[in-house]
Nucleic acid binder design. Sequence first.
DNA 1: AATATGCACAACCGCCAAAGA
DNA 2: TTCTTTGGCGGTTGTGCATAT
Length: 291
Amino acid sequence: MGRPPCCENGGVKKGPWTPEEDLVLVSYVQEHGPGNWRAVPTNTGLMRCSKSCRLRWTNYLRPGIKRGNFTDQEEKLIVHLQALLGNRWAAIASYLPERTDNDIKNYWNTHLKKKLGKMSAGEGAGAEVKSRSAAPKGQWERRLQTDIHTARQALREALSLDPSPASSSKPQVPAPEPAVQATYASSAENIARLLEGWMRPGASNGGKTSSGSRSSASAVSGGEGASASHSGTARRPEGSTGTSCKAEVDGGAAAPGPTFSMLESWLLDDGMGHGDAGLMDVPLADACEFF
DNA sequence: AATATGCACAACCGCCAAAGA
DNA sequence: TTCTTTGGCGGTTGTGCATAT
């Protein structure tokens, strides 16, 4: 048989999702919870393959997603996590609970790659990072061991660069409110309302971060507590570090605050008695405890 | 004002690995 | 133990928007 006939049936719709489809999907997930994506098209009548439904949910509709501008702090974190982990976007995203791996990946490919490219033209650091990401999969772990010290130093430097609150460092650009999105927003508001009702019971930090720079997207991101979505997979051996850590992060209500501070404290803590060697000796799996 | 170009983002595709039968 | 099914990840592409010419 081989691959399942996920997307091979004719009649499977492709392309951008409509607000109506979003509503259907959100309503379904609201009722049944995320998961069992296979059943979603069947039960909802959506002419989308299960994969597409899952992707739409995790990358766009899932509550707690922060969209719009990346803060300086987030940017630096991504840069250095990328240096540490390579292109393990899911693992990187696990340290930025409000961002999706797709978002981070896009941001990297469109912004940061270029930025680092420019930097590498001037100095060696960027090139170093570049060479890291370009290396084959199998080598990353060894590379990580050897480069972790460098990365830590770089991150410490980066994080100490702007002591000012990173979130405020970037002016929150007023949403341009394009006409096209306005039509979507009205529907997205409905979705947001649905999500609000869903998240409220038991949601401790809902609406924490909806900075709302974008009409459609921000309207959808209602609260946090999306622990169900990023259902951790401890599959890829090389990516398992971040993913398994994520489970613990999620366990803590996916609170970015503690995650950040602990990460920073680790990264910035050169005065630790065990120092760098201590971390180096720590198996990757155990390194999770730092977060 | 019209056209060309570049950019940003959403979505798709192919592969891999875990889970279940 | 093997095969099938499902979910997840990373890379890539397509499309719409913004800016430059």
